[in-house]
Design a protein around this nucleic acid. Structure first.
Lengths: 291, 291
DNA sequence: CGACCTATTGCATTTTTTGCAATACAACTT
DNA sequence: AAGTTGTATTGCAAAAAATGCAATAGGTCG
């Protein structure tokens, strides 16, 4: 039994849905299923009632949830009580991060980092993904949570935390975008809502170029988040990373189109100047990211 | 952080000696060292003071020990409270086991098994290792904890739990056995204390045969445990599995001789009739053994 | 009955763990 | 002071475990 298992179980008992829990945990549903099976094996009892959807905790499961909660809290408390690597480091780090990444990665990362290095002042800037890399290059930020660019500038280092596919999304209503109704979609006619710039835009442009077309751009916006909203309103088809879609309140108003070939997925992670990686502050953050 | 880590840490804090703790845990010292390092990493503090021998827990280590103790106990309690696989199985199993194995393996195995299958009546026979296999073959026992024979009889299955080298031991005093004092030992002259029969004896005989000699047998005894005592008394050189030596109160009165080539090590584990393995009772025991 | 949604399993791949041997380090001994 | 012993730690190759994808199974809802 691993503390990761305990966390996983808490996620399961919150969502009561393996697929959703697995997303929160950044792992596949099959992995989570197997972890759960192993937990049940080790606990010696069925913890989750699978007969129904949503899932339901058994009595044993409820007891186990309490055990997990209590144990993790106890460990958390222990860590903050004894962390000695604490006071050594101080200074400040400027971290740039997209709004979306701030939902899914930033919280975890910061919680761990602040606990260990409370004396490090963190300045967090949120903004558009397209800016992330340039902010690091221009030293406006020490580190960014961003998607890995196709070619990483020589002076930068990158550490992937999770992949996120790049998706075509359309309004849910089938006839909102009439160009999609045809059997063979003529993509050059489909109104697109795209980022003004950045990696996502580059990949979309390349995808169209590979088909010998240019996209019919209906709107260009700064920031992926707005794309979901505009698509939900029915103005056209958009392209966003899965991570953005998942965290959008509009997610249920749009649908994902499967296209062939797929756009190359994003790899979301930490990015910093290689040279700066020697600095204790950055090393600390780098190390914190993997656990 | 893994529950195995917690157990490992308890062992460390008991022995305050990695080598000893690692033996109790059936793992190598290097493994334990790395596990400890990882625990410290995850806990965010040094847990054990290495500057001295015996080791010493730091303050953080003491807190962590309490956390580990409490967590394991809580989990233990949870398991016994919810174990549902309990009532299904009932019946009886006859287990044969050497005295020595009863120290190092039986306790763990039984604890886990009884917890899950309290309705299974276990009849435990302890006796000499040499009998173990034949007891299973003759169905006098359903299963045995024994060393794996050179050629496993066709009808039997074996599951290794841990290896244990076969060692030459001599009295600590250098001149108690004068034949050992020479630069080149003439093994045919050394008085030996050997098992009457069994795998250990077979291997010793073979070792001598490979050198074209027969051993000079001073005493033959039934059961390895007595060999250690006799050797400690100074009557001659004996051969016992490391497991026996480790658990013997006489261990400090003897020393291990390094010989070339080494005797083939024992593989200690469970042994049962393959056919019987279909039985739910035996399957249960088999499964319990691996965790 | 079929379409759909969710969890589970087979399998190839990647990641992690492990033990052995070599090394490092400290306390004693000579 | 140099060597010896007893201990923990690290490099490295082998073994074991975890993981994701794709296929499958087991439901429920229309």
């Amino acid at each position: 039994m691993d503390y990761k298992d305990l966390q996983a179980f808490l996620a399961i008992s919150t969502h009561l849905h393996l697929g959703q829990a697995s997303q929160q945990l950044h792992m596949s549903a099959s992995t989570l299923s197997r972890r759960l099976a192993r937990m049940e094996e080790e606990a010696g009892a069925r913890l989750v009632e699978r007969d129904s959807s949503p899932l339901q905790l058994t009595h044993a499961g409820e007891l186990f949830r309490q055990h997990a909660e209590h144990t993790l809290e106890s460990f958390q408390q222990l860590r903050s009580a004894v962390s000695t690597q604490v006071s050594d480091l101080s200074g400040s780090l400027t971290l740039f991060c997209t709004v979306t990444a701030s939902y899914s990665f930033l919280a975890d990362l910061l919680a761990r980092f602040r606990e260990r290095y409370p004396n490090v002042e963190l300045r967090i800037h949120t903004g558009d993904a397209a800016d992330a890399i340039s902010r690091v290059q221009s030293q406006a930020a020490d580190v960014a949570i961003a998607a890995r660019p196709d070619v990483l500038p020589e002076a930068l280092s990158f550490k992937t935390m999770a992949p996120s596919p790049l998706l075509f999304i359309a309004p849910r209503g089938l006839n909102t975008v009439p160009q999609l109704a045809r059997a063979e979609i003529d993509w050059s006619q489909v109104p697109m809502v795209l980022s003004e710039s950045g990696l996502g835009r580059t990949r979309v442009d390349r995808w169209f170029a590979a088909r010998g077309m240019t996209p019919h751009i209906y709107a260009q916006v700064a920031g992926h988040e707005a794309i979901v909203s505009m698509v939900a309103l029915g103005v056209g088809v958009g392209v966003v990373p899965e991570l953005v879609l998942r965290n959008s309140p509009m997610a249920s108003r749009v649908r994902v189109l499967s296209v062939e070939p797929e756009l190359e997925p994003f790899a979301v992670g930490l990015c910093a100047a290689t040279e700066q990686l020697q600095s204790p502050l950055l090393q600390a953050l780098w190390k914190t990211a993997r656990l």
